[in-house]
């Protein structure tokens, strides 16, 4: 606190013009958001109807957070693989990666979530099961068991939602990784290769460490976007904060309370995360 006051001192003593400029440069939008958040927190604590809605909706936070985190981690792997595929000189790999990225980016996320969860996953699992039974019929039962161990019944809607989000975001992250890798100058690969490193070694030890550092802010922004898009899993009846808000609103007819609380929850999470991303970005810049 006293430290802050010290840093404020020069602001008070500077001349009129630049203090005006400083006022203008303050993040007023952030203050406005904070004000709204504080106001809503105040209402939640003082108004019984808002309080009930908040307590009910809060129960969905765990699903929202875990769904986002799991999906994003898997999407990072898909994205990295597809990003590497996009720059691969191997025609087959390159085209597979391009096919994946273009298909996903050509379909609305909401449709993808329906499609992957209700068509993609069941068809794939059925196919694997059928293959497993075929293997068992042909005398390789132990291998067959591997493919029949998991059936569609075993895959919860929440898991399907995670898979759907991961597959979708993988395609977007692929483009971030691709751009990040291509932003590293050619001399870096050449230096690595001239020392006898293989393509894979040069990627792993020289290019990716630099590329990933460069794309951290972009990845962070996509993570924030994913927090918001995780609300789409409510269409699969996964009980995230959006779904429980709908349930609460539907059963109590307290639409106003439900959706105000819901919106402010998302807003709080995304604003905090965005500020963190900016912080990291600034850190990276000054440590260049």
């Amino acid at each position: 606190m006293s430290e802050q006051l010290q840093t404020l001192e020069p602001i008070i003593t500077v001349d009129d013009l630049s203090s005006k400029r400083r006022l203008r440069d303050l993040p007023w939008w952030l203050f406005a958001i904070l004000l709204i958040a504080v106001y809503v927190v105040f209402i939640i604590s003082s108004n019984e109807n808002y309080n009930k809605a908040f307590v009910f909706i809060k129960a969905g936070l765990y699903i929202t957070v875990t769904t986002t985190l799991k999906s994003f981690l898997i999407a990072l792997i898909f994205g990295l693989l597809a990003g590497l595929g996009r720059i691969s000189k191997n025609v087959v790999i390159n085209n597979i990666a391009r096919f994946y990225v273009e298909i996903i980016r050509g379909i609305p996320i909401l449709v993808l979530i329906f499609f992957i969860a209700l068509v993609g996953v069941p068809v794939l699992v059925d196919g694997l099961n059928t293959f497993g039974y075929w293997l068992a019929d042909n005398g390789v039962g132990f291998l067959g068991k591997v493919f029949t161990a998991v059936t569609n019944k075993d895959i919860s809607m929440n898991s399907r939602a995670i898979i759907a989000l991961a597959v979708t975001y993988g395609a977007y992250l692929a483009e971030i990784f691709r751009a990040g890798i291509q932003s590293i100058v050619k001399g870096q690969t050449e230096a690595a290769r001239s020392l006898g490193m293989s393509y894979g070694q040069a990627m792993r030890y020289v290019i990716l460490p630099q590329a990933i550092r460069n794309v951290l802010p972009a990845l962070g922004n996509d993570f924030v976007a994913m927090v918001k898009d995780s609300s789409l899993v409510s269409v699969l009846a996964v009980r995230d904060i959006t779904q429980v808000s709908r349930l609460y609103a539907g059963s109590t007819f307290r639409f106003r309370e439900s959706y105000i609380v819901l919106a402010v929850m998302y807003l709080t999470i995304t604003v905090v995360l965005s500020l963190l991303v900016q912080l990291v970005e600034r850190r990276l810049k000054t440590h260049e």
Binding site: G187, Q188, E190, A191, S194, G196, M197
Partner: peptide, 17 residues
């Protein structure tokens, strides 16, 4: 890769990591 390991190369722009 084996042969490159036997041939050092120094570049105009250094290309340090």
């Amino acid at each position: 890769n084996e042969i490159r390991a036997e041939i050092g190369m120094v570049f105009q722009l250094f290309n340090l990591f």
